[in-house]
């Protein structure tokens, strides 16, 4: 309970300041709606927002799962093969600089208006932190432990399985948390850049439509839902970390 107090006070203070600033009338409600207007929009449009949350949550969950699997698999490949590391790393770094808008038409041309092109965008955005943290984690494994395993006649694969892999897991999970945080904004970018057929096209799509229609409070309400989604994902992963790598949490003392 006490752990919740500080963030609660901070949020209330920020909301209060925001409300005052908006009510004083120095900005237009089309530019910055007051918190009470956003709350009303959230209440009035709960059904619509929930319907749009579905596709977005699906994109985020699948996209991040895919990014984690790919990032992890590539990290292991790169770890076992230094030439591959030299070949892949520059490309992986470069992939982070690709403006999604440039390749979005191609993705739609290939895969249409469904979920697939959006997953590709999210993977492009999220893959990198997982790759880098996992490669570094594998690389930082205690050499002495591996030496010890060698004296016990461990094969390369056994050294990986008993020492390097579990040792790299906390780092990989840190990468996963970064990926989660950017995954939600990745979904927004994906929805903005690749067109979607269907009534409820996702929160990102909804936000863009509302902004165009000057429905600013509803856009803010939708953004608030994205905000909550990101936080929920983050804490879900912290829970997973406690199950997957309990030794790491014990050593660090506490998860955030």
């Amino acid at each position: 309970m006490r752990r919740l107090l500080a963030p609660l006070v901070l949020v209330l203070a920020l909301l209060g300041a925001w409300e005052l600033y908006a009510d004083l009338g120095s900005t237009s409600p089309y530019v910055l709606p007051a918190p009470h207007a956003i709350a009303a929009a959230l209440w009035d449009n709960a059904g619509l927002l929930a319907a749009n949350l579905g596709p977005t949550a699906e994109e985020v969950a699948l996209g991040i799962a895919l990014a984690l699997a790919l990032g992890f698999a590539f990290a292991v490949l790169v770890h076992f093969s230094p030439p591959l590391r030299h070949a892949l790393y520059p490309l992986a770094v470069g992939s982070q600089a690709i403006p999604i808008a440039v390749i979005a038409p191609l993705l739609v041309y290939w895969w249409g208006f469904g979920v697939l092109p959006k997953l590709v965008v999210i993977v492009l955005v999220c893959f990198f932190p997982v790759l880098v943290t996992t490669v570094d984690g594998l690389h930082a494994a205690d050499r002495e432990r591996i030496k010890l395993l060698r004296t016990l006649d461990a094969t390369r694969w056994q050294a990986f399985r008993f020492a390097e892999l579990p040792e790299a897991l906390p780092a990989a999970l840190s990468g996963a948390r970064i990926a989660l945080a950017v995954g939600v904004i990745g979904a927004y970018i994906a929805e903005s850049q690749t067109a979607t057929s269907g009534v409820h096209a996702g929160l990102g799509h909804e936000i863009n439509a509302d902004l165009t229609a000057l429905q600013t409070p509803r856009a803010y309400a939708a953004a608030l839902v994205l905000f909550a989604l990101a936080i929920a994902c983050f804490y879900a992963l912290s829970l997973a970390e406690r199950t997957l790598a309990p030794w790491a949490t014990r050593q660090r003392g506490e998860t955030p």
């Binding site: 205690d142 002495e144 432990r145 030496k147 010890l148 004296t151 008993f162 020492a163 579990p166 040792e167 897991l169 790598a245 030794w247 050593q251």
Partner: peptide, 11 residues
């Protein structure tokens, strides 16, 4: 070899 550091695996 029993190394100087015990090198037990925390996991």
């Amino acid at each position: 070899l029993m190394p100087q550091r015990d090198l037990l695996l925390p996991w």
